[in-house]
Design a binder for these strands. Structure first.
Lengths: 284, 284
DNA sequence: CAGGTTAATAGATATGACTTTTTCCTGCCG
DNA sequence: CGGCAGGAAAAAGTCATATCTATTAACCTG
């Protein structure tokens, strides 16, 4: 059958609330969602009829239908009687659904999406920092502090993976500390995309070969946010966050000018084949 | 059976992309989603076992399961084998899913949500206005202009329903004109909640009995946004939008001080009974 | 009483029959 | 010749039932 084994959620991603990958239909959801998000199934295209999918994946109607319902619930496809499934234009997708955002490979397919993401970050995160300065509890502060300390330590050690993980958690912590449910949701939804942006940043930092950059430029800027939140200074926190994001945008823009798309180096060029060995259907 | 008839989408809500209310499972989704959103089924509570739901609604397993999958996809419930369905805490809901936001009755149950919404608007909408000033097409401008003209006309006539509909479409048009897919999505997601906020505003305007307010205060402020976008002035558009939202917040805060929760006047107090007449299950 | 084994339960999946909606074709009428 | 109406077919929607599987809880042994 054409379905991968069940995989546990990757470590260190507790802030993510992805649709469970368990059961046949759950794996199917992520399989098809990923295909759509990567553009292997183009918007406007019709999905194969159920009987065909049924044969390709080797699962029952029930599972196929449940998976389709989930994808429809997230706006990726449209289901109509007689016509069958059809992939909706990206504008109709629930882009703020963590699953959908995780399925999209924004930088490989659509460089413009990253600029749009930056714009949203610039709108949202300073406001979240402001909220955190107003309403953070001691526990919130402690959580953010821990991530900041981790950032400082790992930046010195050169453990980039740990550094960016802590960076991500730092930003997530501020969203949580804002105690605004919409902002928290929004932060969570954006995390997968932010993760990709950080990957890109890391890639460029590696090329640049300047290990002091993270420790002596990025860390102090984040420290300023933490301090402003600690002294309950909304304007200061907002401004400090704005600086961090503008810096990230500038660095990426600076990096982008040089060299081709870095994704092509370390990622498989061709998508993996979906079905293990049943040439029943050529479309999927 | 306990399901309402199929209902077409209300007029004038083309910007909304709600889960279709068609078919048995679609109606079931909105039925259960509404119950959860209104708090009639509390977080942490277990859903009745499938066989019970099956008996209550008089539909088959298939439809029940598909509806449950959709709700799970939107983060409202968690499904586990043997244990069954359980309502997740609101923090886990996909609050930025238009359906979820439409199901929540934010102001009846949680006045705080409205303040949080205002904070998000204050972060998002000025940025959207800035984007619109940078990237609006003539067609975008035309669409916004039409809504603005409608606002001016209906404000004079005193047709409040039409006025607020145009106001909503005005804001939606700016989101669209920003040509930022995340902002557009975000705008769409917030529209149902914004609609409620406008309802509240209208209610207060009616009490205030000052028909000139809309025409000579609200409209000019919106006109300033339109003009700034037209002359491609990002800073001006951002500032004008900020003024509109801050004004709305202030007016609502001003209104809130007086009188009790206005929702209690014109809404049915008790929720409608779900099942037509089968006393099989007392929990639903 | 602890720990592991087993049996029962309820959801998950499979399957095939039946229903409903939509599309498309055909033929009639203007 | 074009358009509309009616009917046939196709594919999704729904249903009923059966089997599979994971989880819980009872139970049994040491």
């Amino acid at each position: 059958m054409g379905l991968p084994d069940e995989q546990p959620r990757p470590a260190g991603t507790t802030w993510l609330r992805l649709y469970p990958r368990i059961g046949l239909h759950g794996r199917l959801v992520h399989q098809l969602g990923g295909r759509i998000g990567r553009g292997e199934l183009a918007p406007g295209e019709a999905l194969p009829p159920i009987d065909e999918l049924l044969a390709v994946f080797g699962v029952s109607r029930t599972s196929i239908r449940e998976a389709m319902r989930v994808l429809a619930a997230k706006g990726l496809i449209e289901l109509r009687q007689r016509t069958g499934g059809r992939i909706r234009p990206m504008a109709d997708w629930n882009l703020l659904d963590p699953d959908v955002l995780a399925w999209i490979d924004p930088f490989r397919l659509e460089p413009g999406l990253m600029a749009e993401l930056a714009e949203v970050r610039l709108a949202i995160e300073p406001q979240a920092a402001r909220g955190a300065a107003l309403r953070a509890t001691p526990a919130d502060l402690e959580a953010i502090q821990v991530q900041f300390s981790t950032m400082e330590a790992t930046a010195l050690e050169g453990d980039l993976a740990a550094f960016y993980a802590a960076d991500l958690a730092f930003h997530a912590g501020i969203f949580d500390a804002s105690h605004n449910r919409f902002l928290t949701q929004l932060g969570r939804a954006l995390m997968p995309a932010l993760d990709r942006a950080f990957d890109l940043h890391r890639h460029h930092v590696l090329r640049r070969e300047d290990p002091t950059h993270l420790r002596w430029r990025i860390c102090p800027m984040h420290g300023a946010i933490l301090e402003a939140i600690r002294r309950q200074d909304p304007a200061g926190a907002e401004q400090a966050m704005r600086l961090v994001i503008e810096n990230a945008i500038n660095e990426l823009a600076y990096f982008e000018e040089r060299g081709p798309n870095p994704w092509n180096d370390d990622r498989p060029a061709a998508p993996l084949p979906l079905s293990a060995g049943r040439p029943t259907c050529t479309r999927l």
